[in-house]
Design a protein around this nucleic acid. Structure first.
Lengths: 244, 244
DNA sequence: CGACTGATTGAACCAGCTCAACTCATGTGG
DNA sequence: CCACATGAGTTGAGCTGGTTCAATCAGTCG
């Protein structure tokens, strides 16, 4: 299962300036840069470079001044907010094509941590801002992305505030499955590169509740727990549990 | 307390096309239209009209096609998502200057319900879209607003997922207080035009827990419960409770 | 092999929920 | 003017879904 392998933990960290040209970039069709034409992509090349991050390394911290913005081209990143006492809420998991630093504000506001080996396209925020300011159609596209994110955030609020543990877990699995399939990573197995603790911090639960809920779903043959992920055996049953 | 009175429930509903000119609009300095110059405001006048909504009336429903977008110029509106079984999550409370329909997507995605008598500036979504497309600096401003909203949504996720009942209530009161003061509605009393149930549905709690928490805070002389709102007696104590 | 880390499982506990009674303010109509 | 209904808010008592604490299991790495 090459896909799982790619998703699995790999501790080596070799950040290095890369040379993938925007025109050849696979991630483009899922990304904000899909709005650009060939000449614009060449201009984008000039203000960007590719970098990679090892699993568990931080792309940026919530309190940092936002110096760079990133476009995720490979791997998975989790975004979270932390409270001073260590409690944490994972805002979301970023997949290929997702833009990190979308808000373009002076502070990041969230921490971005690589879950797998991650490749990104990196821009200085100021360069990117002036690039955008000269291209309203890109701004328009970014705005649409932001609107989409806002919707997802609101769905997550409904989930956190009003859904039961089982509904949370079922919804989480289905949402991730949908997102994978949108980026063409459809597979019999749903890779879960994040830990149980991460899932718990995303769903407003404890690690034990996540574990118990998953094993119950597995016992009822709705899912099958495999190393590095799960298989969705009964999607329609999951959808019923997710109450949507 | 004229302010409270304005906020209190008034059941009459007299929707009528108004004639307040954008140039004279009080809400402009808190709103997305603050980005526009005089000539643009005149153009905006041409594609907009003012309307009012009675308390408890809906500006729009989450499943509706987004035909209009609104700019709130007076009163308070609550935005929520509902589950088929009636469970509800209040995404936020919109104040003067807030833009409703920010995402500009085809469906609203949330329901907007007037809490007080509400006055809005109303645009057809398509007209507004083409107006925006000709004015990149307005798009830029909208994008910034969306980024800000996204941040607030993420804070709310942290609140819903990881904070205790007391922290939730304290945070809610402080946030609302801050927002009132930003729109110049600073007052000894914090008006709460929404019901306890609405607060509960915003914080992911039950009405009883909200009530108990408020009475406890009142018993400890941190707040004072008055008709139509509360007084914040010990802001610093509240801030400690909110853990920020 | 042992040490370590992440995940699972069990048992006791508790923050917040449910259910129910009661208060208080407002409205209605006889 | 009172009797009564209505609806929002409060309060109490008991319950429970999910947490906490602790033990165990299963890989993985050196």
């Amino acid at each position: 299962m090459a896909f799982i392998e790619q998703m699995s933990t790999n501790r080596r960290h070799k950040p290095q300036r890369g040379s993938v040209r925007c025109v050849d970039c696979e991630a483009r069709r899922f990304s904000m840069c899909g709005a650009l034409d060939v000449s614009e992509l060449e201009a984008l090349d000039k203000i960007s470079h590719t970098t990679s991050f090892a699993p568990k390394s931080l792309l940026f911290d919530q309190w940092e001044l936002a110096g760079n913005v990133f476009n995720l081209t490979e791997g998975m990143v989790q975004l979270y907010k932390s409270l001073p006492d260590g409690r944490r809420q994972i805002i979301g998991f970023a997949l290929v094509g997702d833009f990190l630093g979308l808000a373009l504000m002076d502070h990041y506001g969230v921490t971005a941590e690589a879950l797998t080996m991650v490749k990104v396209c990196c821009f200085s925020r100021l360069n990117f801002l002036s690039f955008v300011d000269e291209r309203p159609h890109l701004l328009r596209r970014l705005y649409e992305f932001a609107g989409h994110e806002l919707n997802l955030a609101q769905d997550q609020m409904l989930l956190l505030g009003r859904r039961t543990a089982e509904e949370k877990v079922a919804t989480f699995l289905l949402n991730l499955w949908t997102r994978y399939s949108r980026i063409g990573a459809i597979s019999i197995t749903l890779p879960l590169p994040m830990s149980r603790q991460d899932i718990a911090d995303h769903l407003g639960l404890t690690i034990e509740t996540v574990s118990r809920t998953l094993t119950r779903l597995a016992r009822e043959r709705v899912i099958l727990i495999v190393p590095g992920g799960v298989r969705l055996l009964e999607v329609s049953h999951l959808e019923r549990l997710a109450a949507r």
